[in-house]
Design a protein around this nucleic acid. Structure first.
Length: 372
RNA sequence: UCCCCUGUAGCUCAGCCGGUAGAGCGGGUGGCUGUUAACCACUAGGUCGGCAGUUCGAGUCUGUCCGGGGGAG
């Protein structure tokens, strides 16, 4: 994978790194848009690649249920199936089974659950989940893990962590048998809920295994921002620094900045794309809800400093009109804009790390963006 | 001039045999963080055209005036 740290901030843990995946080189920090079903909702693949995005996230659980791995196998893998020749990280689906399955039972060696689509019964082992991602030919694979809610009692958190660790070891063993086939990289996931001793144990254990990258899971699951920051800082400080760091499921500009400050290299989130579809847009002066009446006659772009297609061609008034009339173009333009905004934010952050002025940038950004 | 229909929230309209009003849209607010989400939740607006009757009680019945729409001449 050839992981290299290109630049480190002197007064924070922020860093610029690069590594190579089967479908091209990754420069971090990087935000991965979420395309659960192989499509980032409301945007074409070309729109993504044109704006420099070369790593998206898909979901093993969703793709396993629909269309099923047989079809993806017949298509020649996920890249061919969805017609995306850049990198794909596939999440395992542990989080989905945790968050949405109406029925689930986790035992020591497998997970049983019912489909959210038709209620059908399914069983997956950690090996099955790696096998699915092998069929997909994912560039980054994630192992099945057990995610827990913030209010989970200690004993249950311990149990979930132990199962996660056991499955991590099994996943890596299975992956090692086949990884040469296509070069996909398996990341480990740190759990431990909101207990520092468990976070420490998990970070150390996952770091001790032979994963090419380390992910932090189980954060940003409903806890207050201060708790998130506390556990992020604590956990990120304990993972192997010679590997890429991936914080799962964030976020907003504030969360992203916090993550980068703590040495996180990669993150993914539905937030920018989902709020876009729901009519909320990022600007350097904070978010705006474009459907509000006060934008009805604003003939300027969403964000003057933005170079996205929406900002180059359309006014706030028109985009509001698209949303009010329920035109599909509204969510499309909004999504493109929000992804561009996050990309621009991250490239500014990268520049600030280059010049070792990350904290100055953070202060300046939050000063104008606000902390909403 | 006569006849019929009609006047209820910003808009379009519901309100059975009378018991002090609702919806959709629009407005406002909040939410969305390893996607079951172009979604969800909450909220503000009405002396029911005016006046006078009947009635214990009228948006609902009666009279009349005013404003719309249609028809006949």
């Amino acid at each position: 994978m050839n992981f290299k740290i290109l630049k480190s901030s002197s007064n924070t843990k922020a860093r610029i790194t690069e590594f190579t995946l089967p479908h091209g080189k990754i420069l971090t920090p990087i935000f991965m848009p979420v395309g659960t079903n192989g499509s980032v909702k409301a945007v074409k693949h070309k729109t993504l690649s044109d704006s420099g995005i070369n790593l998206i996230l898909s979901n093993t659980y969703h793709l396993y249920l629909r269309p099923g791995s047989d079809i993806i196998k017949k298509a020649g893998g996920l890249h061919n199936f969805i017609s995306w020749q850049h990198n794909i990280l596939t999440d395992s689906g542990g989080f989905q089974i945790f968050s949405l399955a109406p029925f689930r039972k986790i035992t020591k060696d497998r997970i049983k659950f019912r489909s959210h689509i038709d209620g059908s019964y399914h069983t997956l082992t950690p090996e099955d989940v790696i096998e699915l991602q092998r069929v997909f030919k994912s560039d980054i694979l994630m192992p099945l893990d057990v995610c827990t809610a913030p209010d989970t009692e200690y004993k249950k958190a311990v149990n979930a962590m132990k199962i996660t660790h056991d499955w991590a070891a099994r996943s890596i063993e299975y992956w090692k048998r086949y990884k040469q086939e296509w070069g996909g990289q398996l990341f480990g996931i740190v759990q431990g809920n909101f207990y520092k001793d468990l976070r420490k144990e998990s970070a150390e254990y996952i770091s001790s295994l032979d994963f090419p990258g380390i992910a932090i899971g189980g954060l940003s699951v409903g806890e207050p921002f201060d708790i998130f920051k506390d556990f992020l800082e604590y956990t990120a400080g304990l993972i192997d620094k010679s590997k890429p760091h991936y914080l799962m499921g964030i976020g907003t500009p504030e969360y992203i900045i916090e993550a980068i400050e703590n040495g996180i290299d990669m993150f993914d989130c539905v937030y920018p794309t989902r709020i876009a579809r729901n009519g909320t847009l990022f600007t350097w002066n904070g978010k705006i809800a474009i459907k509000k009446e006060n934008f009805a006659e604003e003939f300027k772009p969403i964000e003057e400093k933005c170079s996205c297609f929406a900002c180059k061609n359309y006014s706030r008034a028109f985009i509001r009109h698209l949303f009010k009339t329920n035109e599909i173009l509204g969510p499309m333009l909004a999504t493109e804009h929000n992804l561009t905004f996050i990309n621009d934010l991250i490239s500014e952050i990268r520049s600030s790390i280059e010049t070792d002025t990350f904290m100055d940038f953070k202060k300046r950004f939050l000063g104008s963006y606000g902390s909403n």
